[in-house]
């Protein structure tokens, strides 16, 4: 018997239903078109942006992502629930995009090499700053609201080396955890950390160049 004071915990069937992605996938595989549309709506655009970090031509990135969805629908890819649906889907796209990038002789290298990302900050020999970074002309609040700065951050991201852009995209834009990024890209935790750090550092430098 349910009373008015009950909570969602007391009466789980009365809690607001947010269909989980796993449940959406099950429904889609059982022929529920709306469930599939909902999944595509959630992930198509992020997957497309991600695929573009491997294959630069938009039409080919589109093919890769579409093939991934088709693979899921046809049961060629089996979701074993060892990761979240999102991580699994990114991994499928990564593998397909990598295959295609190799065919195009355009391979994203995830090894970490010295690239001088941090040297630009100008430290003295004993590690002190030569000078504090200059202040930016806009407050964080205005930066986050302004339409022009959106283009600025997109351009900064675009200029990153491929491997750094892939990691920054997955971690910061898509919000994947470090372990999931390692899983999606088959890279070590150390490489993931270094690529993320260098990528973010360069994006900050690009913003600084425009905002100081």
């Amino acid at each position: 018997m349910c009373y008015s004071r009950r909570t969602a915990l007391d009466c789980p069937d009365m809690s607001p239903t947010v269909p989980s992605e796993d449940a959406l996938l099950d429904r889609a595989l059982n022929g529920d078109e709306d469930a599939f549309v909902e999944l595509v709506d959630l992930y198509h655009a992020p997957l497309l942006r991600f695929a573009r970090t491997f294959v630069r031509q938009p039409s080919q990135a589109e093919d890769v992502v579409q093939d991934a969805w088709v693979g899921v629908l046809r049961g060629l890819e089996r979701f074993e629930r060892r990761s979240s649906f999102k991580t699994w889907m990114f991994r499928i796209v990564a593998n397909r995009a990598k295959t295609r990038a190799v065919r195009e002789q355009r391979y994203v290298q995830f090894d970490v090499q010295e690239d001088g990302a941090d040297a630009a900050e100008n430290f003295t020999e004993d590690g002190r700053r030569n000078a504090p970074p200059r202040e930016w002309k806009m407050t964080p609040e205005r930066l986050l609201l302004s339409v022009e700065t959106r283009a600025l951050i997109e351009a900064a991201l675009e200029q990153l080396p491929d491997n750094q852009r892939v990691v920054v995209t997955l971690r910061d834009l898509e919000g994947l955890e470090a372990a999931d990024v390692c899983n999606v890209l088959s890279i070590s935790e150390t490489n993931q950390r270094v690529l993320l750090h260098r990528g973010r550092t360069k994006v900050r430098s690009a913003l600084a160049a425009a905002l100081e």
């Binding site: 970074p133 700065t149 898509e174 994006v203």
Partner: peptide, 27 residues
Amino acid sequence: QMRTTLAMLRQLGRDTTGASADRARDL
């Protein structure tokens, strides 16, 4: 500045728009 950079990257991620429902239905 790094914190602001990160907030901007996260916001860019949230701003991405979905795919057209019609195409998903065709697929």
